[in-house]
Design a binder for these strands. Structure first.
Lengths: 295, 295
DNA sequence: TTTTATGATAAGGCCTGTTTACCACGTGAG
DNA sequence: CTCACGTGGTAAACAGGCCTTATCATAAAA
């Protein structure tokens, strides 16, 4: 019923009007004059109404005059879309939604994002932070394309690219009996007031697991946790990256026996492809952090 | 550089998403499945980025998700334009700019336009009025497509379609010596106070031309003219159509010797084609007035 | 395993768009 | 007046795009 207008003939019409003739338009469009003539005639046939007067000169009919600005508008919108998509593909525009665990978000991401926006000034990044489960959930649901986190168990639909290893240690106040140790075994913690936190399950499956039973508190909020440590209420275990170095009175002593690490890496859906912008972010992160290794 | 997107493949993408698969989309679009596959793959090649995930199911990539609403938008705009132009061509929408001399505008057009909008409810009409020269000028300049007027001399670039003949007569007050005549010769007017008006040049080239020399006034405004006639200041000549019948004290006596007529018809540019709406108006007027003949 | 979906692929035909070559017409200069 | 050059229109040949039929690979459901 309604004709399917192709963009190119509309362009021809504009060129004919702008250049003032079929020949001139053909020259500008790198086509021959008959190509222009026939395309226009086919367009007129589609519309059921001539666009140009018949008598020799390339003069618009009233209907043609009516059509001209509308053709121009449609072409403009087409070109805008085409340009926009090309920019997305060539990573000159776009948006990345990503997520990271708090330690990564606060310690790694500021520097990382600064460098990233330097290389890709036109790309915008949204960063959410949350615990490992939450990050995983965001990736699985598709709310974010990339996650920086540690993975508890590998799943087929998830792709995990390891980036760095993060050592777990004990955090205590500087006047604690363990504070001056260079390293510590799990037995040394027996009898201590141990505060559990979100990262404590890293000890699960290690010989240090019994420690989890003796913990008196379970504090997930980092601010509350450090406040209790500063108050000398007890000790906790944390990955080094999650240890807030800016608290002067707190000390981090690596756990030596067992040595416990978490592996931080890039999480994404294995089957789902990434947006061009996310591809840029993925390769940037891997390139930037691959050599870093252990923290 | 930037790809030339065709509308149809974009439609395919929408159908695939809406119908949930290539096969279903093919069915809806009355195409075969390979046609859809190949069109999509060609589109992906143009964009340089896949729109659908590779694994079996027709799932959009993030880039595809990004594209989808933009494709939909461009298609909507295309269809809106296509529909709009079709409506113009089929005279279900549109606009006619026309002009007429005052007598026609006030005596013929109200009835004419009423009937016209009844047959073409969606067409809009703009009507200007002015003397014959002005109407002609509007047609020549292209400000209006159609003029209802009398033509002084035919020109090659103007096309004039006669519609009716309008008899010139003498207009005087009911107590004038000529008032009761059924017709009048030009000699009877000698010695009368004759008021010229815009239509007086209809007498040029006739034996009545000497009358123009004896005219004491030249009043172009019809209101002023009738006021002077009602006041009994003099007589004038007018085509019957220009004679305002609603003035009870004025009389119209046809000029018999010479018999002077003006020919009223449809004026348009002969080379320039008409807009669809103007075509509707032209054929309507001719059809409506062709049989009317003499006023 | 068999069946029945899915989408991908290959080969052939038709139609569209383009080019080359030629024509008809109008115009301006010699 | 005529000739040359401008305009756009027309015809035939050709290439490429789009669509079709037929077939295949794969995965999920019976």
């Amino acid at each position: 019923m309604l004709p399917e207008l192709k963009i190119q003939p509309l362009r021809y019409v504009l060129a004919i009007v702008d250049e003032g003739g079929f020949h001139a338009a053909a020259r500008q469009l790198h086509r021959t004059q008959p190509a222009i003539s026939m395309a226009v005639r086919e367009l007129e046939r589609q519309l059921g109404e001539p666009l140009f007067e018949k008598g020799g000169k390339a003069a618009l009919t009233p209907f043609g005059t009516y059509c001209l600005p509308r053709f121009r508008e449609l072409i403009t919108q087409h070109d805008r879309l085409s340009r926009e998509l090309a920019a997305q593909v060539h990573q000159q525009a776009g948006h990345v939604d990503m997520a990271a665990v708090p330690s990564v978000a606060s310690r790694l991401m500021p520097h990382l994002l600064n460098d990233f926006t330097q290389r890709h000034p036109a790309l915008r990044v949204s960063l959410q932070d949350g615990n490992a489960d939450f990050v995983r959930q965001l990736v699985v649901s598709g709310d974010v394309e990339l996650g920086l986190t540690s993975l508890w168990q590998s799943e087929a639909e998830l792709s995990f690219t390891p980036l760095m290893r993060d050592t777990v240690g004990v955090v205590c106040r500087d006047d604690h009996v363990l504070a001056s140790r260079r390293q510590v075994n799990w037995e040394a913690l027996q009898g201590q007031v141990l505060i559990r936190n979100g990262t404590s399950r890293l000890l699960e499956g290690t010989v240090a697991e019994p420690l989890l039973q003796q913990s008196a508190f379970d504090i997930s909020n980092m601010i509350s946790l450090t406040a209790m440590l500063v108050a000398g209420i007890g000790v906790t275990t944390l990955p080094r990256l999650a240890f807030a170095e800016e608290y002067e009175r707190l000390r981090f002593i690596p756990l030596a026996n067992p040595r416990v690490e978490r592996e931080i890496g890039l999480l994404r859906m294995s089957q789902r492809s990434l947006s061009p912008a996310a591809k840029a972010m993925e390769s940037f992160i891997i390139e930037e952090l691959a050599s870093t290794g252990e923290v």
